[in-house]
Design a protein around this nucleic acid. Structure first.
Lengths: 126, 126
DNA sequence: ATTTTATTGCGACAAAGTTGCAATATTACA
DNA sequence: TGTAATATTGCAACTTTGTCGCAATAAAAT
């Protein structure tokens, strides 16, 4: 499946780049100029994930957030980005923290996806 | 609101204790003898969380898991249990790993909830 | 210009979790 | 022991999040 360049794709990518944070589907929809279908946004984002352009985190609120963070090695965004995320309970912002985390798993365990989220109050809201 | 002791409550608690792992609503429903309503299970579990008897983790699949783990200081189960969880992509088991994790947050950040989940293949499935 | 096929929008759908309300059961108290 | 107060349950309805099928559209290749 070759990828095609479309307006939707580029706009979503711009929004993610401009934000610098991890954004939910809803946040993206709000920041996009044109009306864009929910399904389309999810499909674009999932394609980005497959291509390693973006990574996904699931918050303790059960929602998916997508980020194109500078800290990530581009080729590692897909699965093994093991840095910590912070979600502010007040303003809703989800940011990628600089610190990575290497967890020594017990013998015989194989890690595929890291989903590390700490929720609380960010600098601006605390 | 005083709590009352009911059959549902006790049975759910037994299931959690017997398992030792973090269980989803569905897993609990399967292991409970009597037919129990979904809403009831969630309400019981949420009450346990409030009372600090149980803690909750949200997986990268967006589902909630509830655990009564031995490693936890009982009074800390509510919010600050900061240990890591492992979810097996094959068998679906979610376990509380022994290791806790103290993350030094940036200046001005306040942590309230730790939701740390690593997914992959457990010892039995890898 | 035409064909191929990736992408979009719409609608429908599934799953997870929550809530309101009436019925039930537990606890307290007379 | 009987009765009142109220916590808990079941049912149904509902919300939210995310996915999927299908027809229409648009990008790329020829």
């Amino acid at each position: 499946m070759k990828r095609r360049s479309t307006a939707s794709k580029e706009e979503i990518l711009e929004v993610l780049a401009a934000s610098g944070n991890a954004l939910s589907h809803e946040m993206i929809q709000d920041r996009v100029s044109s009306a864009m279908d929910r399904a389309t946004i999810y499909r674009v984002l999932n394609r980005f994930c497959e291509d390693g352009k973006v990574h996904k985190v699931v918050g303790d609120n059960g929602k998916q957030y997508f980020a194109m963070c500078a800290n990530c090695d581009e080729k590692k965004q897909l699965h093994s980005h093991n840095h910590i995320h912070f979600r502010c309970l007040q303003c809703g912002t989800v940011e990628c923290l600089k610190q990575a985390l290497s967890v020594p798993l017990p013998e015989g365990y194989v890690a595929k996806v890291h989903n590390l989220v700490i929720s609380g109050f960010c600098k601006a809201c605390s």
